[in-house]
Computed example of a mutant assay.
Amino acid sequence: MTNSTFNRPDAVDLSALKQTGTGPGAGTAAEATRRGTRSSWVIEVDESTVEATIRRSLQYPVVLELTSARVRGADQLSADLAALANGAQGRWLLARVDCDAHPQIAAALQVQAVPTVMGLLAGQAVPLFQGVLAHDEIVTVIDQLLQAALANGIAGHAEPVTVADDTEEAAPVRDVRYAAADDAVARGDFAAAEEAFDALLRANPADADARTGKAQAGLWARAGQLDPAAVGARLSADPQDGTAVLDAADLAMVQGRPAEAFALIIGLIRTTVGDDRDPLRRRLLDLFETLDPADPALAKARRDLANALF
């Protein structure tokens, strides 16, 4: 399994930033005083809440937007990021810094221009982009951040904050039935998370979120018990060793290489007959469940599996 500490050569040292944080909270919104409220996954960050915001990235990805109202196009970027964060329903959190009001944070992060967008993972900041990007380009960048998070075992969900809303309809909040599973994921107890998602599936076999959650938690529970060097040695010694192939596929998945994981299993299916194929096929289908249905690696693997089986 990969080291759960996120390391990149372009990561920004956050030690100076952490020293500026004095508040216990993480920048949640004030209680709404107007009649309507909605849930949001966007918070405002200042010097008193920056340390707690960094800590959040130990559980789930945080996108840090450093912006200024004076910059042309920054408002559209803010709107696009907020819409994506709220649409993700807690898969990541948007933390926004007004650099005009809080220049110390921008200085500590060595920001050269605004807007600047960074990713926070496992307490480290990694530059994502500067300037204003088109919506589709932002989606691509954030998808890469989420893949890096998964590859480092950062798979928790952010809790929404409550903000005032003048509209009649409130934004949805994640069902409280998932609380036990999400809490287990957040503390890294993937076996417990798998059990919690499985209980939800037994109660409602059509629950797609629970099915995906169970598959992801199961993957991390298995991968957490593996020694990559030992798995590699077993696979080199016997490429037809089904257990070694499945273990190597799990490691490839958590390291962000789904196409490689799928190819390992499908390659063995092609040379296997009878009942020996069934555990390989079942594991492959479980791994399929861990990905976004629109992932191109998934579509290709489904075609390859069909060809291998028939």
Rank of each mutant, 00 (worst) to 15 (best):
A11F: 09
L264P: 04
A11D: 10
Q124C: 11
T290A: 02
S78D: 12
Y60E: 03
L287C: 04
R202C: 10
I43N: 05
Q19Y: 11
R303E: 13
G256T: 04
E31M: 12
K18P: 07
L66V: 15
F288W: 02
R187V: 15
A26G: 14
V161Y: 03
W41R: 02
A217I: 06
A294C: 00
A308E: 05
D183M: 13
L219F: 01
P205W: 01
D46W: 03
T49H: 03
Q124D: 11
A26D: 12
I54F: 05
Q76K: 14
A223E: 03
A210W: 04
E289N: 12
F129E: 00
D241K: 03
F190I: 07
I138Y: 06
A210P: 05
A249E: 06
D182N: 14
E44Q: 15
V50S: 04
R56C: 03
D46I: 01
A95E: 00
P160K: 00
V126M: 10
V132Q: 06
A261C: 06
N152M: 01
V245D: 03
F129M: 07
E195Q: 15
A155K: 00
A148D: 10
G87T: 13
D100V: 08
T212R: 15
L58F: 11
E169D: 15
L280G: 05
K300S: 13
L280Y: 06
P239V: 04
G274I: 02
L145T: 05
G232F: 00
G27Y: 01
A233F: 09
T212K: 15
L120T: 00
A122Y: 09
L150M: 15
L285D: 13
V254W: 03
Q216G: 11
A252I: 05
R96W: 07
Q147M: 14
I138R: 07
L219C: 09
A149F: 02
A125D: 01
A203V: 08
L121P: 04
A203N: 09
R211Y: 03
G21C: 00
A101G: 01
T167M: 05
A186K: 09
F190N: 02
N204H: 12
V173G: 07
A244L: 07
Y60G: 05
D276P: 03
N204G: 10
L81F: 04
A125Q: 03
D295A: 10
T243I: 14
N152F: 05
V273L: 13
D175E: 10
A233Y: 08
I154F: 06
Q130K: 14
E65K: 15
L219Y: 00
S39A: 15
V97K: 05
S78W: 04
E47D: 14
P228I: 08
A233P: 07
